[in-house]
Design a binder for these strands. Structure first.
Lengths: 164, 164
DNA sequence: TATTGTTATACTCTATAACTATA
DNA sequence: TATAGTTATAGAGTATAACAATA
């Protein structure tokens, strides 16, 4: 159980990680945005799977997953096979072309990290991975109720230097 | 200098952190999205500053910063004061209302983390913070050239169960 | 009736480029 | 001419809700 100041700092750093993610996105080919890359990566790591399983691994809604999958399928990087056991389901499978794309992305990612993290030890990188993995596990499948209170409508009064 | 497999895992975990960030976003009031929260947080931590300084801290383009700032200014959470030394510049300052909003967000964030990270020690949270801070520093101000090769155009053939 | 997946819609975040005002 | 900031526009990611097909 940590202190409040630490939690605030953690929230700040989580927000700031977005800059690193955007940097990673910039090295991807223009026809393979981050969402597509994530689909290929997970299929490459975990093998064939259904949409629902992929959605769970991506931690996004299945509607979002469906869009990403349609994108990579349209480019021939994955196949969407019928599941003989359940005709509603689709089995996703990386194609050879998709594997090549994945290999290419691995090369780019490795090169980027090798440049940026040249002064990190193997152990330090491992620690960060371990802690981030645990962080995600701690948040886990907490698809709880939003409990998001409504807010009053305010006009976007731009060009107004001072308030009120 | 770490191994390639580690870099791939790091990339994967960085991507996955998005789920945690989305979870944090869900506890924010609906009129204070993540971008606005980041503006208030940074002004609360670093005090008054100019647009350009805020953009740097946010690690986003100034046009993006301008939008976020307009949003929070429209709600009276910050003032945009004229800089007497440079009429082009604007000094951003948290208002009492903005401070209240910030305090409220701190409470929400702390509660969320206290629930999710109840089994983390103070030291573990500190390690994660330290490593993420360093990660961001390692990527730092690398606003380098994209070098993003073009890609062939492919139709989005949805409603096509198996490929080709 | 419940589940799997797709689609339409809407919102947030971001970058690029054009623009205004000032240095 | 260069810099600070704004705005318009476009693209990516996401969630909700409505829908089709199947269990």
């Amino acid at each position: 159980m940590a202190e409040q100041a630490q939690y605030e700092e953690l929230a700040r750093q989580l927000s700031a990680v977005g800059a690193v993610k955007r940097d990673m996105g910039r090295i991807l080919p223009s026809d393979c945005p981050a969402g597509s890359a994530a689909v290929l990566t997970l299929l490459g790591r975990h093998g064939d799977m259904r949409m629902s399983k992929l959605a769970e691994l991506l931690s996004v809604d299945m509607s979002v997953t469906s869009r990403h999958v349609a994108h990579v399928a349209a480019r021939g990087w994955i196949d969407r096979l019928q599941d003989p056991a359940d005709k509603r389901s689709r089995i996703l499978r990386l194609t050879p072309a998709g594997q090549h794309r994945l290999d290419d992305m691995y090369r780019r990612t490795t090169q980027l990290f090798a440049e940026r993290l040249s002064d990190w030890t193997d152990d330090e990188v491992g620690q960060l991975i371990q802690l981030m993995t645990r962080l995600r596990a701690s948040f886990g499948d907490c698809r709880s109720a939003p409990a998001r209170p409504p807010a009053p409508v305010v006009e976007e009064t731009t060009r107004t230097p001072a308030s009120t």
